[in-house]
Design a protein around this nucleic acid. Sequence first.
DNA 1: TATGAATGAGTATTCATTCAT
DNA 2: GATGAATGAATACTCATTCAT
Lengths: 210, 210, 210, 210
Amino acid sequence: MKPNAKDAIVKAAISLFNSNGYSGTSIRDIASLAKVNTAAIAYHFHNKPGLLEYCFMHFFEQYISKIEEAFASIDRGAKECLKRIVADLIHYQSENIHLTSFVYREMSMDSQIVREIMSTYLLKEKYYFQNIFERGFEWNEFRPHSIPYLIIQLKSLLMMPYMNTQYMREVLYIFPNEPFFEQKYLKDINLWIDKTLCSDLPIKKGAALK
Amino acid sequence: MKPNAKDAIVKAAISLFNSNGYSGTSIRDIASLAKVNTAAIAYHFHNKPGLLEYCFMHFFEQYISKIEEAFASIDRGAKECLKRIVADLIHYQSENIHLTSFVYREMSMDSQIVREIMSTYLLKEKYYFQNIFERGFEWNEFRPHSIPYLIIQLKSLLMMPYMNTQYMREVLYIFPNEPFFEQKYLKDINLWIDKTLCSDLPIKKGAALK
Amino acid sequence: MKPNAKDAIVKAAISLFNSNGYSGTSIRDIASLAKVNTAAIAYHFHNKPGLLEYCFMHFFEQYISKIEEAFASIDRGAKECLKRIVADLIHYQSENIHLTSFVYREMSMDSQIVREIMSTYLLKEKYYFQNIFERGFEWNEFRPHSIPYLIIQLKSLLMMPYMNTQYMREVLYIFPNEPFFEQKYLKDINLWIDKTLCSDLPIKKGAALK
Amino acid sequence: MKPNAKDAIVKAAISLFNSNGYSGTSIRDIASLAKVNTAAIAYHFHNKPGLLEYCFMHFFEQYISKIEEAFASIDRGAKECLKRIVADLIHYQSENIHLTSFVYREMSMDSQIVREIMSTYLLKEKYYFQNIFERGFEWNEFRPHSIPYLIIQLKSLLMMPYMNTQYMREVLYIFPNEPFFEQKYLKDINLWIDKTLCSDLPIKKGAALK
DNA sequence: TATGAATGAGTATTCATTCAT
DNA sequence: GATGAATGAATACTCATTCAT
C-alpha cells in the first residue's frame, strides 16, 4: 500500500528530530507524519535508537565520501584541496539542512551511538584534515600552527550556520538554505583560509607544487 | 532540612540536561540527583519548562552583562573592545562549561521559550556587536564587510568548543575546561580578528583613535 | 525447504511453553527457535490457541490410549491392572517430560480449551479409574473408600514430579528424566497401592478373581 | 481517596493471576478490577515482577511460619508433629485457595524470582521435613525410607487439590474451599502417614520418646 | 516548606494476525 | 506452500503534575 514506507519514515523523522529533538519526538509523531503505522518503524529500524543510527549513518556516509573524493586532488595543492572540500561540504549541508542541523545537535549528546559514530567517521575526517594541514605546512602553503586548533576553527565555520539555523533566521535574518547564502558564506571561509590560515608566510622559496 | 534546595536542583538539572538533553531528562532524575522530592521542583520552578527558563535566564543574564561591561570601553577602540568582550565571554563559558553547552544546544530547538530568549538577549547581543563593527568600519579599524556574516564567524568561534565538548575531547583530545585551553584558544580568535577582520586595510589616513 | 516445519514448530513450542508458559511465549519466539516464518505457524495451526490445542491433544491422545490398553487387562485383577497403568503413565510422562510439565501447568488455567480437554479426556480417565476402583472393592482387593478421594491421591502421585521439575531439581536434587528415577518412584507408588489402598483388608475370603 | 489501594491491588492480582496466569494478566486488568490507576501499581510495587514477588513472599512467609510453629512441638513425637504441620498447612491453603493455586503454578516457571524463592523458603521447608523424618526414623516411628522420595509424596498430597482446583471441580466435583473437604482430605493424608509412612515397623522396642 | 500518594496522558515496544506475492 | 511487509491493538512502564497533609 505504502510505496516507500521506509523513506517516508526517514523524511518525517528528520523533520521532527530537527524541530523537537530526538528525545522530544515520539515514534507516534513520526508515524502519523509519515502516514505509517507505528509498528512499521519498529519493523524497518528495529527501535527508536535504530532510526537515529540510520539517520547518522545516512548523513556521515555521504559526508565522508565528499571529503574522500576531494582529498584525491591533494596533489594540486593543500589550499586548493581544502577549498574544494569546504565548498563540497557547505553545498552538501545546504542541500540537507534539516538533517545536518539535527545530526550536529544530537552529536553533542552523550550516548553509545554518538561515540561509535565519532570513532568511525569523525576520526576519519580528522585524519584527512590533519593530512591536508601537514602537506600545507610542508609545501609552505599554510602558516605553521597547532593542527587541532586549526580543526576547531575550520569545523566551527563549517558547522555554525547549520547548527543554529534558528538563530540565523530570527536574529540575523539569514536563511542558510538559500543558494545565495551558500556562495557568500563560502567566500568568507575562503577568506579565513587565505588570511588567517595562510597569512604571514615566510618568503615563498619556490613553493613545491607538483 | 535542605539548606539550599533550589541551588541543588539547578546544579543537578544543568548536569543532566547537559548529558541527556532537556527532553531526555526527567523531573525525577533531577530530583533524585539533587536529593530532593519531585514536588520540590514544582514548588520552586512551577514546572519543567520553568526550570529550563530559569537556566536560560541564569546563563544569558550574566552573558549579556559581560558584553555590556566590556562595551563601555568602546572609546578605547573597536578592536580593543571586541578583544575584551571575546576574552570575557570565553572565560565565562569556560567557567560554566556544562551550562553553556546545554544552553547552546537547547537554543537550537524550536520552542516558545527559545524564541523569547532570542528576542530578549540575542537581539541585544547583536545590537552590541553591530555597534562595535560599525565603529570599527568608521574608525578604519576593520575591513568593511557584511555585519551579519561577521557575526556568524565571530559567534561560531565563540560557541564551537562549548557546543561540541564531546567532539573536542574524543576526537581532538582537547579539554575546554582546562585553563591552558582558554588562553590558547583566545589567541586564535584574536588572530582571526587581526588577520581576517582587520587585514588589507586601505591606507590608514590618521585612524581616529582617541 | 523446511522438510518438517510442523514438527519443528511443535518441538520449539513445547520447549518454550514449558519454560515461559503459554502466555509468556510469543509466536515469534517459537518461529525463530524453529527457524520458520511466523506466518507458517498460522498456516499449520491457524492461530496461537490452535497450536496449544494441538499440544494438548497430542499429549492426551497418547495418555488415554495408554490407559485404555492397560485397562484391557482388568480381568487379571484390579490391583494388577492399576499397577500396570501407573507404570505405563509414569514411563510415558518421563519420556515426554517437557510436554507433560507444561500441559499439566496450563491445564490449571481457566479457558475454553481447557474445559473442552477436561470433558473429553479427563472424564474418560476418571471413568477408567472409577471402574478399576469399583472392581477392586468388589473383588475385595482394595479397602473401601471414597473414589474421588482415591483419585486425588493417585493423580497427585502421578503428576507431582512432572509438574514441579524445577522443585525436584533445585530443592530435592532429583531429576525425573533419569531412568533411575522412574523405577524408584514407581516402587513408591506401588507401595502406596499396597499399603494405603489395600491395607487392613478384611479376611480375604477367597479373593474372587474370575 | 482509596483507603487501601495496595491491598485492593493485591486482592485483584491474586484473583486474576489465578484464573489467567501471571503472563496472561495485564497491569491494566488488575488496575481496573482494583479500581485503581495503572500507575498506582508501579508506585506500590515498582513493576509487574515486583507485584509477583510480593505475592510470593506474602504466601511463603506465612507458609513457613506455620511449619516453624508446629515444628516446635517435635518433642511430642515426629508423627504427631508431622500431622500437626499437615493440618495447619491444609487449613492455611484452604483459607487462601486462590493465592495458593496461582503461587504453586507460577513456581513451576523458570525465572529469577522463582529461584530466589526456592532457595529462601523451600530449602527451609525441606530442612524441617528432613529433620522430622530423621527423628521419626531414629525414634522408630517411621519406616526407614529415602527422605527426598518421602518429601515428594508428602508435597504431592499437600499441593495437588490446590494446584488443580479446576480439575477437582469439573471432573471430581470436589470443592477444596469447603470446610468439609478440609477435614476429609486431612484424614486421607493421615492415613498415608499411618499406613505408608509408618507401616511394617519392626518390633517397637519401647518407642523412645523423651 | 516539604512530601508521599496518586493520576491520566504519554512513552516505546511487542503482539498475533493478515495478505499480496 | 511459504514469506516479507504491514497493521491495529495491546503491552508494561514513565511522565510531569497535583493535592492533601
